[in-house]
């Protein structure tokens, strides 16, 4: 009796969840966004990563570090590819200094970062970060895109179909989709009595992070009076555009070898396909010696 009811429940569950449902652990619906780096041939858009770094620098770096990245990564191939000299001068002006030492007097000292130093956040340690942020810890962003995902809550037949589609199309951008949705899902910019902000994309719906991008507070891509560099179009600075660019930048930060990886991937694929076909033809020749 009970099993019959459970079976009926299972059937109706399958029938009801006709659409694919995507949700962060909390339950909100997360849209898939189109990224330049998604799919089998996707690559980072250099201009977008450069804009994204500017958003990180002006909006995120006040609280969040990027400490698995070094300044040198900013001018290396496959990333934003800023000018080397510009990055080195940026490093010398970076507000978060590197603790070094001890010097000849046995004292520790602070110095500006070199190209080989990590992009540190402003807080000396977790306690300091929590103390300055109402008890919440702004996470380091170097791996944030890889460390977040969107759960598939669809019924099992759809789940299986979606998995197959994702494997064939090379989709693993759920982390970027989530962060993009998070940055776009603030409802109002006033905290509640506990200092929490309403954000539908965040599990539980309330987040400690102050809205980093608001309509009145976007990151401008061009200084006042500056015009776009020749041959480049600079998109308008909207919340959505800022969010997209900084998410792309953070995606690169968590997976800096993506460009090379996918390029080599195709070479490997072509090599394997040709070799498999040749081996198969060779095998046919060899087996043709036998009577079938």
């Amino acid at each position: 009796m009970q099993s019959a009811r459970a079976f009926g429940l299972a059937l109706s569950a399958i029938a009801l969840s006709a659409g694919t449902v995507w949700a962060a652990s909390g339950g909100a619906h997360i849209e898939r966004h189109h990224w330049s780096f998604t799919g089998l041939g996707g690559q980072y858009d250099k201009a977008q990563l450069q804009r994204g770094f500017k958003v990180y620098q002006e909006s995120c770096s006040a609280c969040h570090g990027l400490s698995r990245l070094s300044f040198r990564n900013l001018f290396e191939a496959g990333g934003p590819e800023f000018d080397e000299a510009a990055v080195k001068s940026l490093a010398t002006e970076w507000p978060n200094q590197i603790v070094d030492g001890p010097n000849d007097d046995g004292e520790m000292f602070e110095r500006p970062p070199l190209a080989s130093d990590p992009i540190r956040g402003p807080f000396a340690n977790e306690k300091a970060a929590r103390a300055a942020n109402n008890g919440a810890l702004p996470p380091d962003l170097s791996l944030i895109i890889k460390a977040r995902t969107v759960e598939n809550h669809s019924s099992w037949p759809l789940h299986v179909v979606q998995m197959g589609k994702d494997v064939l199309s090379g989709y693993q951008e759920a982390g970027a989709d989530y962060v993009y949705a998070l940055l776009n899902s603030y409802k109002g910019s006033e905290p509640d009595t506990n200092g929490m902000y309403v954000n539908a994309a965040f599990p539980g719906g309330k987040i400690a992070m102050t809205p980093p991008l608001t309509v009145d507070n976007t990151v401008a891509y061009l200084e006042d009076g500056q015009s776009a560099p020749e041959g480049m179009t600079v998109p308008p600075s909207t919340v959505a555009q800022n969010a997209e660019d900084v998410t792309a930048f953070l995606a690169w930060a968590s997976d800096p070898s993506l460009n090379t990886r996918k390029q080599i991937g195709w070479q490997v694929m072509i090599y394997l396909l040709i070799t498999t076909v040749l081996l198969y033809l060779g095998k046919k020749q060899i087996w043709a010696r036998l009577k079938h």
């Binding site: 693993q172 990886r261 991937g265 195709w266 694929m269 394997l272």
Partner: peptide
């Protein structure tokens, strides 16, 4: 190789 190069963390 498909997973190694296109979906390493899938």
């Amino acid at each position: 190789a498909w997973f190694v190069f296109f979906l390493p963390d899938y």
